[in-house]
Design a protein around this nucleic acid. Structure first.
Lengths: 167, 167
DNA sequence: TTGAAGTTTCAAGAAAAAATGAAAATAAGT
DNA sequence: ACTTATTTTCATTTTTTCTTGAAACTTCAA
C-alpha cells in the first residue's frame, strides 16, 4: 500500500467509525484529513481533497472547532484561514470524552433525576422506579469515573508542564 | 409526572441517546420498553406500545438479541414468543462495552496494523506514520483497559456466584 | 396433509440526515 | 466609501437510513 492509498483508507476508516458513533461521516473525514496533514489546510484544500462543497466544509470545520479538535490559524500576509488538528491522539481521546460527557451524560443525569420523582405502587411503577434508580447509579458511576480520568490526565499534563518550567 | 408520562419520557430519552451513539432509535426504544416492563412482552404488545410495524419490531428485537440485551422466552401452552430485557444496568453496560469492543475496536486494530505498513519518507509520509502509530497505541490501550474491566467484572460475577454455591 | 398462528424477509416507500450552491454577510485593503 | 476576497447561512436537493406491509416461510396441532 502506498502513501496515497493509505491516506485514503485512513480517511475512509475514520469516517466510518465516526458514523457508527453518531458523528457525521464528513466531519470525521475532515478530522482524519487534518490529522495526517503536516501543515494546516485552507477550506479550499479540504474541499478539493474530499470532494465536498464549500458549505459542507465550513459547517463541519466549525463543528470540529466546537469539539475542540481543530483550530484556526492565520498566516501573515494571507487573508485565508488555515485549519489544523490536535495531533496527540491521547489528547484527542480525552477531549472527545470530555465533550460527550458534558453534552450527553450530564443532561442524562438531569433526566434521571426528574424520573426518580415518579411515584407509583403498581407492578409497572415498581419496575420503573427500580430501573430508573439502577440506571441512575450506573450513569453516575460512569460520570465520576470519567471525571477522575480527565482530572488525572490534566494533572499529568500540568505536572509535565511544571517539570519543563523547573528545568 | 405520573407513571405513564415517566415511561414515555424514559423511552424517548433512551431512544435519543441511542441515536446519538449510532444506534437505531427504535431499537433503543424497544430496549427501553422492555427494561421498564415487569413482564416479558410479545411482538404484538411492542408494536402496540410503540406504534411500529411488525417487520420493524421483528428486526429490532432480533438485533437486541444479537447484542445480548434481550432474550426470548416461551410460555407453556402458548405459541407466541415473549421478550424480556436484562434488567441489571451494570450488566447492560458491560454487555454493550463487550459488543462494541468486539465489533469495532478489534477491526480497527486490524486496519491500523495494515496502515502501519505504509512506508514513505516525505513530510506527508512522516506525519501519516506518526499519526497512525500514535492512534494505534491509544486504541490498543483502550482495548486493553476495556478487556481488564470486563474480566474484572466477570470475576466479580463468578466470585459472587461461587459464594452463593458455598453457602 | 392441511390449515391456522406466528415469524421472517425484503422490495418499495417514507423519513431523517447530510450536502449543495448561490446569495448574504463579513472583513480587509485601497 | 468602495471593491474584492473570504466566510457563513440556509432553502433546496440528494443521499442515507429506517419503516412498512404483504408474501413467504415456519411451526404446531388436528
Amino acid at each position: 500500500m502506498n502513501l496515497q492509498e493509505g491516506q485514503q483508507k485512513f480517511i475512509e476508516t475514520w469516517g466510518t467509525l465516526g458514523s457508527n458513533w453518531g458523528i457525521n461521516r464528513t466531519m470525521a473525514q475532515i478530522h482524519a484529513l487534518l490529522l495526517i496533514s503536516p501543515e494546516a489546510k485552507t477550506a479550499d484544500e479540504i474541499m478539493e481533497a474530499l470532494h465536498i462543497s464549500r458549505g459542507n466544509t465550513n459547517m463541519n470545520v466549525r463543528a470540529l472547532m466546537d469539539w475542540g479538535l481543530v483550530f484556526k490559524t492565520l498566516k501573515t500576509g494571507e487573508r485565508k484561514e488555515y485549519f489544523y488538528a490536535e495531533k496527540d491522539m491521547w489528547k484527542v481521546a480525552m477531549q472527545v470524552i470530555k465533550e460527550r460527557r458534558r453534552r450527553e451524560l450530564e443532561p442524562l443525569l438531569g433526566t434521571m433525576s426528574s424520573l426518580k420523582a415518579v411515584q407509583d405502587e403498581s407492578a409497572e411503577g415498581k419496575q420503573f422506579a427500580s430501573t430508573v434508580q439502577d440506571l441512575d447509579q450506573v450513569i453516575a458511576k460512569a460520570d465520576n469515573t470519567l471525571e477522575l480520568l480527565l482530572k488525572a490526565d490534566e494533572n499529568w499534563f500540568i505536572n509535565n508542564f511544571l517539570k519543563l518550567l523547573k528545568r
